[in-house]
Design a protein around this nucleic acid. Structure first.
Length: 473
RNA sequence: GCUCCUAUCGUCUAGAGGCCUAGGACGGAGCCCUCUCAAGGCUUAAACCCGGGUUCGAAUCCCGGUAGGAGCGCCA
């Protein structure tokens, strides 16, 4: 049997990071078993679903590389099919019409709560042998309810949580079609999973309580229920359900925060899953090792510090050709055109040890492409001093005459100057840093010079000398 | 209230009855290295929710508490 998994978000907002993790698990499981991963847009809630949200889902999944193996299924385009199945169930007696009004139902619920019972439909329109139903009241459009088995137990063999038992008596007759004829969530899910040939439903564990109902509907339809795996949700740092007030919850926000897609995936896969002491997993390695049976049953908290650490591991080791497009995106985002200046790959190699995120890398690398707006106050005060000016001038003259503009030659030139003047290397390097980068932070000075190029270097050294002189007057 | 789920350092986790004096990672503290910022190396503090049982032996199995979470919609 070929494994078929699916990710089924509802387009009512952004692509939630918790959703990304279940999508990742579904994707990995399919890949691991040579199966197929499908995408389904659950847009039956016309009120809240938006086209923008659909686009956000596509965009997020594409950035992360969690691509489906077939075009997405939209539930709103399957209404005819749902109606057909409802008619069939009505005809077969596994569903029935219920003429209760919302007001009646609200009153029922309130009464049950007052009696400290679990609120549930009392079955007043449920047909039973020997039971006489009241005549349908005029003017009430009926809903359709599923006729759930009244007795017996049902056990869900969850691939993550193990056996979970439910009493059918606990499950009431849920509505599968509204008064206006449109189908409801639990019903659509069942029909879609059946029609799409889903073999493994991997979803958030807020759905465990829906599972026995869905299995019962599937059985009523004569279909073989898929295997289920309910993954625990992701909590914020404070242990409360991850929400907007925790900062970034939308997957795409992590791009803006400076994450590499592979790093985000790596961090996410380690939340609730592990393989011994390994921390870093390439896509291939995840696919090779991932297994639902090793997914934790308990929820995990999102730890931004660790996520950033993982990101740094990727920046440090990834092929610069992979990082370059992302850095390009971030530089342009802050108004820097990396077209004129050193190749991005070379800058990445020089910067990646000291940058944990692409935001940081872009900020620290902008000076290779544009003039620093101003000197960092404290750094200028400390390093662009009267003592430093002559050193900058001397270095400038030396560099202007340097035959080879290469890191080793530049290294030699700077060292020689410091030695001749009898000062430590830092006495030269630090003022040069501020002159070139605007602040006392940059890659090793020889690399910085090599990347910046002769023309820009000489111009900025001259400007720094002028800056010192102006301040003295 | 009812149903269902969960429980190892601050956080993510290893742990399948003796290998546990509970291991790793992030973060913290300290030291070393060093032209800045980093990176790196070394050292260190830090946890089995509680109570019963089973067993020669329990973080691991069972029961009961406690705490947290999810669900109980003509939402998905």
């Amino acid at each position: 049997m070929t494994v078929v998994t699916r990710f089924a978000p509802s387009p009512t907002g952004f692509l939630h990071i918790g959703g990304v993790r279940t999508a990742l698990f579904s994707w990995l499981y399919a890949r691991r078993h040579g199966g197929r991963f499908l995408l389904r847009i659950e847009d039956t809630d016309r009120e809240r679903s938006t086209e923008a949200a659909v686009q956000a889902i596509f965009e997020g999944l594409e950035w992360l590389g969690l691509v489906a193996d077939a075009p997405p299924v939209f539930q709103t385009r399957r209404m005819a099919r749902y109606r057909e199945v409802i008619e069939r169930m009505l005809a077969e007696g596994t569903a029935y019409r219920c003429y209760c009004t919302k007001e009646e139902l609200d009153a029922l619920r309130a009464a049950q709560m007052a009696r400290k019972e679990k609120p549930r439909y009392d079955g007043r329109w449920r047909p039973e042998p020997g039971k006489t139903l009241p005549p349908p009241p005029p003017g009430v459009a009926p809903v359709v309810r599923f006729k759930n088995p009244a007795a017996g137990r049902l056990v869900v063999h969850d691939l993550i949580k193990g056996a979970i038992e439910f009493d059918n008596a606990e499950l009431d007759d849920l509505i599968i079609a509204r008064a206006d004829g449109t189908p409801t969530y639990n019903f659509c899910v069942v029909v879609d999973d059946m029609d799409m040939g889903i073999t493994h439903v991997i979803r958030g564990d807020d759905h465990v309580n829906n599972t026995p109902r869905q299995i019962n509907i599937l059985r009523a339809l004569g279909a073989q229920p898929p295997a289920y795996a309910h993954v625990p949700m992701i909590l914020g740092a404070d242990g409360v359900k991850l929400s907007k007030r925790h900062g970034a919850v939308s997957a795409i926000e992590y791009r803006a925060l400076g994450f590499m897609p592979e790093a985000l995936l790596n961090y996410l896969v380690r939340l609730g899953w592990s393989h011994g002491d390994e921390e870093i997993f390439s896509r291939e390695r995840m696919i090779e090792l991932f297994d639902l049976s090793e997914v934790h049953k308990s929820p995990a908290r999102f730890d931004m510090d660790k996520a950033v650490w993982v990101n740094h591991q990727y920046l440090k080791t990834a092929d610069p050709a992979i990082v370059a497009p992302e850095l390009d995106w971030h530089l342009r985002r802050i108004g820097v055109d990396p077209g004129q200046g050193p190749p991005l790959a070379a800058v990445i190699l020089a910067q990646r040890e000291r940058c944990k995120t692409l935001v940081e890398m872009a900020e620290k690398s902008a000076f290779f492409y544009v003039e620093p707006k101003a000197y960092h106050d404290k750094d200028a005060a400390k390093h662009l001093t009267a003592d430093a000016a002559p050193l900058l001038e001397a270095l400038s003259a030396r560099l202007a005459a340097l035959p080879q503009w290469t890191a080793p030659a530049l290294h030699e030139a700077v060292n020689a100057l410091a030695a001749e003047r009898g000062v430590g290397l830092n006495k030269v390097a630090q003022p040069v840093r501020v002159a070139l980068a605007g602040q006392a932070i940059s890659p090793p000075i020889d690399q910085t010079l090599a990347l910046l190029g002769r023309e820009r270097t000489l111009a900025r050294l001259a400007a720094a000398v002028k800056f010192v002189q102006n301040r003295q007057n």
